[in-house]
C-alpha cells in the first residue's frame, strides 16, 4: 500500500494512505501523523489525521512545498515499518437507542429518507440483514469501535466498527441532508458511526442519543474541564444500551457534575486483533469492566 501525495493549494499537503477504508489504512494515517509531529518539520502548523488519509497545513514562506513533500514521504517508510501497536483508552458510551428526540427528528425529515414508511433503525436493520431492531442494536453495541477521525464540526468522532468487513454495518446517508439533528445523536453513514457533538445539519441515519456531552466550549462539564473536546483519534468506544430511566439519571448526573465515563487505558496490537477479532474484543470489553 503506497500513499498518494497531493497539494491542497499552497498551504496544505494531503496524503491519501488508501482509497478504501481499513484498519491498516487508519493505522498508517495515525502513525504518519505521529511521525510528522515528532520530526518537527519546520513550517508545519497543523497535522490532521483522518480515516485513511492525513493533511498537513504548512507555511510556504518557511518551507517550500517540494521540501515538505520530500520530508513527509521519508516518514511514510518509517511509519510503514512501525509496530502497529497503539497505547490508547477504551471508553464506554451509554446510548438510549430509539429515543423520542431522534425519532421526532427523523419523522420530520421522512421525505428525505430512502424508506419513508419506517424509521432509520428499521431501515438499517433490514438492509444489514437483521430480523429485528433489537438484533441490530445488539450488533451495534456488541463490538467496539475505533475513533478513526475527529472533525467535520467541533469534536465530532467518526467511528469504525472493529469487526470483519462482512459484518460491518453499512447504510447510505439520507437522500438529502437534514437541516437539523439533535445534539449527541448517535448516527451512521457508509461504514462510519458518529456522535453529533452539536445540534445541526446532518445526513447520517439516526439510531439513538447519548446523555454524555462530548464537546463543551464552556468547559463546565466535569470531565471536559481540562479540554473542551472529549475524543481523540485512536480512542476505542464501546456503546452500552440504556433505557429512558438510565438516560434521565445520566443527564442529571452530568448536570450535577458527577457523571464519569468509564475509561480504561489499553494497549492495542493490530496483528493480534486480526488473528482473533472476537477474542481481542472480548478482552477489551473485559478490561472496560475491570477484569
Amino acid at each position: 500500500m503506497s500513499a498518494r501525495y497531493t497539494f491542497g493549494g499552497d498551504e496544505h499537503l494531503f496524503v491519501e494512505c488508501s482509497e478504501e477504508m481499513s484498519l491498516e489504512a487508519f493505522f498508517t494515517s495515525l502513525s504518519m501523523a505521529k511521525g510528522v509531529r515528532e520530526s518537527g518539520i519546520k513550517g508545519v502548523t497543523e497535522i490532521c489525521p483522518a480515516n485513511a488519509s492525513l493533511q498537513m497545513k504548512f507555511d510556504p514562506d518557511v518551507i517550500h512545498p517540494n521540501d515538505i513533500l520530500k520530508e513527509v514521504k521519508a516518514i511514510e517508510g518509517a511509519a510503514a515499518r512501525a509496530e502497529p501497536v497503539l497505547k490508547t483508552r477504551i471508553v464506554e458510551i451509554p446510548v438510549f437507542y430509539n429515543d423520542p428526540w431522534t425519532h421526532e427528528t427523523l419523522m420530520r425529515f421522512r421525505e428525505r429518507h430512502q424508506d419513508p414508511t419506517g424509521t432509520d433503525l428499521d431501515y438499517a436493520a433490514r438492509i444489514n440483514g437483521y430480523g429485528a431492531v433489537d438484533d441490530f442494536v445488539g450488533a451495534h453495541s456488541g463490538s467496539p469501535w475505533f475513533v478513526s477521525m475527529v472533525g467535520f464540526v467541533a469534536g465530532l468522532p467518526f467511528m469504525y466498527q472493529m469487526v470483519e468487513r462482512q459484518r460491518q454495518i453499512q447504510v447510505p446517508k439520507y437522500l438529502r441532508p437534514r437541516t437539523d439533528t439533535p445534539k449527541l445523536t448517535v448516527g451512521h453513514g457508509g461504514c462510519f458511526g458518529c456522535i453529533y457533538s452539536v445540534r445541526g445539519a446532518g445526513g447520517y441515519q439516526m439510531f439513538g442519543i447519548t446523555p454524555m456531552p462530548i464537546f463543551d466550549p464552556t468547559q463546565t462539564t466535569s470531565y471536559l474541564r481540562d479540554f473542551m473536546v472529549f475524543f481523540r483519534p485512536g480512542d476505542i468506544v464501546k456503546f452500552k444500551p440504556i433505557d429512558r430511566d438510565a438516560y434521565d439519571q445520566a443527564v442529571e448526573d452530568v448536570d450535577k457534575g458527577r457523571f464519569a465515563p468509564p475509561i480504561r487505558e489499553v494497549s492495542f496490537d493490530l496483528r493480534e486483533f486480526q488473528k482473533d477479532i472476537d477474542g481481542c474484543n472480548a478482552m477489551l470489553e473485559g478490561m472496560l469492566n475491570g477484569h
Partner: peptide, 12 residues
Amino acid sequence: SNIVDSCYPYGS
C-alpha cells in the same frame, strides 16, 4: 462523488 471521509483543506 463520494470518498472515504477525509480532511478538507481551507479553500478546497
